[in-house]
């Protein structure tokens, strides 16, 4: 079947088998490999992207269902070389380690903040309930999303985790928490 979709700003028209999963169409058909796949039951959320602005798990959508839509993947989230505030926040607050869940996690967070620009910690945790991370224990992801929310509201990001200044001399650095 013929499908036409705009992916990260570019229109593509292709012939696909009806059974082709959206995620495979993007990855194998269009070479948009930024969106990874982590499960086959729509639990892990690694393949989350935005279809017409809303988060979906692209492993549980057929490419034919996405005919006529506009899709944003992690590769299309930045504006040129300017990262989206959520992308920035994930780096500033160490919201990722191996990074495999990160594209889905970031796009789920973008979706969350589009509905709830000022979430509580608890709302962030529930808003990300469809995305599994095995590395971070989620704490820094939550922090990243709260910081991005603050920045997107115009209140500036939360204080970052990383140090812009050099550490104190190692010999004198005491225990910190």
């Amino acid at each position: 079947m013929r499908v036409r979709m705009k992916v990260d700003g570019v229109v593509y028209e292709d012939e696909v088998e009806p059974r082709t999963l959206l995620t495979h169409h993007l990855r194998d058909g269009l070479g948009r490999v930024g969106t990874p796949i982590g499960c086959d039951t729509s639990n892990c959320g690694s393949c989350t992207l935005l279809v017409d602005g809303e988060s979906v798990k692209s492993c549980s959508v057929l490419a034919v269902q996405a005919d006529g839509t506009e899709i944003t993947t992690i590769q299309g989230l930045a504006e040129g070389s300017t990262w989206h505030p959520v992308q920035k926040a994930f780096q500033e607050h160490h919201g990722l380690q191996c990074g495999y869940c990160t594209p889905g996690m970031i796009l789920a967070a973008v979706d969350l903040l589009s509905h709830n620009p000022d979430p509580t910690e608890d709302e962030v945790r529930h808003g990300l309930e469809g995305n599994l991370c095995r590395c971070t224990g989620y704490q820094n992801i939550v922090k990243s999303v709260l910081s991005a929310a603050s920045e997107m509201r115009g209140d500036g990001p939360l204080p970052g985790s990383f140090q812009d200044a050099p550490a104190e001399s190692h010999e004198t650095a005491g225990a910190s928490s």
């Binding site: 086959d40 039951t41 729509s42 549980s60 057929l62 269902q65």
Partner: peptide, 26 residues
């Protein structure tokens, strides 16, 4: 019938069902 597909598509992926045709109501 394919509605939202959130139960059906995982079932198809695991090859627990083999429908001849999907009628998509989307």
């Amino acid at each position: 019938i394919l509605a939202g597909g959130q139960s059906l598509i995982p079932v198809l992926r695991l090859r627990l069902a083999f429908p001849s045709t999907l009628v998509d109501l989307g």
